[in-house]
């Protein structure tokens, strides 16, 4: 399954953009552990923008940046949103409310608690009526999202935006399911018959039994702990083309070949 990578965006602690991430991964810039500065969700109307959770802001920010890099509005792209733990702030608020005698769940929190809330806000923000999925696969969430995105490109012949994001839980859930730090990545993937600038990736089922590790001392802990950050090994291979192996399941691996 082949796809043209026409737009990329990255956002994380000390990773303010794809350009900066590229420089860090290629060793021309040193990574600094700085707190993540989340931009406003400018794609949303002002009242929704104000209430958007950190995860929604992270997702919408990388989605919009990737579309900008690809020169697309986002209105017609199929959508794949991948997140292992979903909106931890919202889950914590509801679970806390349910642990009190009144058990008063906020209706807004409730509709924001669906795993596809960020996908819903994205579709509203950019006026997207296309197919949209939201998935989770624990530590294999990025590879599963990549697989689904490539299935869309190869089987439906449609362009897709893959958005993989996670944001740590507040306590006490964070102690149960720590993911280290927030991280978001978005990629616009087109059928290779489309005209466009960018590398072509070829994704195939792999016989390997381990993923290609990220060879970057500072970012390896993020790659290890935060499910969407598994994308960093793919992003690194875009700089230095070659084959890498991505986990798309406990016993399921994908070869990703970068066609120069």
């Amino acid at each position: 399954m082949k796809a043209l990578v026409s737009g990329i965006a990255v956002l994380g602690a000390g990773l303010e953009s794809w350009e900066e991430t590229k420089a860090i991964l290629s060793g021309t810039k040193e990574w600094q552990d700085q707190p993540l500065a989340l931009p406003k969700a400018v794609v949303l109307p002002p009242n929704e923008r104000r209430r958007a959770s950190p995860l929604v802001r992270l997702a919408l920010s990388v989605a919009q940046s990737a579309c900008k890099a690809a020169g697309k509005s986002g209105a017609t792209l199929d959508c794949v949103f991948a997140s292992a733990i979903g909106d931890g702030q919202v889950a914590h608020a509801i679970l806390s409310a349910l642990s009190k005698p009144e058990k008063a769940v906020s209706p807004t929190q409730f509709h924001n608690s669906v795993h596809n809330a960020m996908a819903g806000y994205w579709s509203i923000g950019v006026g997207n009526h296309a197919a949209s999925t939201s998935l989770a696969a624990g530590d294999f969430t990025f590879g599963s999202g990549l697989l689904k995105a490539l299935l869309t490109v190869s089987q439906e012949n449609r362009s897709v935006i893959l958005v993989a994001v996670d944001y740590p839980f507040p306590e006490p859930l964070n102690a149960m399911r720590p993911i280290g730090a927030p991280f978001g990545v978005a990629m616009v993937l087109d059928p290779i018959s489309h005209s466009g600038q960018g590398p072509i990736i070829n994704v195939t089922a792999s016989d390997e039994t381990a993923a290609t590790p990220l060879h970057h001392m500072d970012l390896a802990p993020l790659w290890q702990a935060c499910p969407p950050a598994k994308a960093l090994s793919l992003l690194a291979s875009l700089i230095k083309p070659g084959r890498i192996v991505i986990e798309a399941g406990a016993d399921y691996f994908l070869n990703v070949d970068i066609c120069p």
Binding site: T133, L135, A137, F140, S144, L147, K148, G249, A250, Y252
Partner: peptide
């Protein structure tokens, strides 16, 4: 997948 020892792709879709 563990119940049946399956080793193909596996994920959960959650779109309400």
């Amino acid at each position: 997948r563990l119940r049946f020892s399956l080793k193909g792709p596996h994920f959960t879709i959650s779109t309400a």
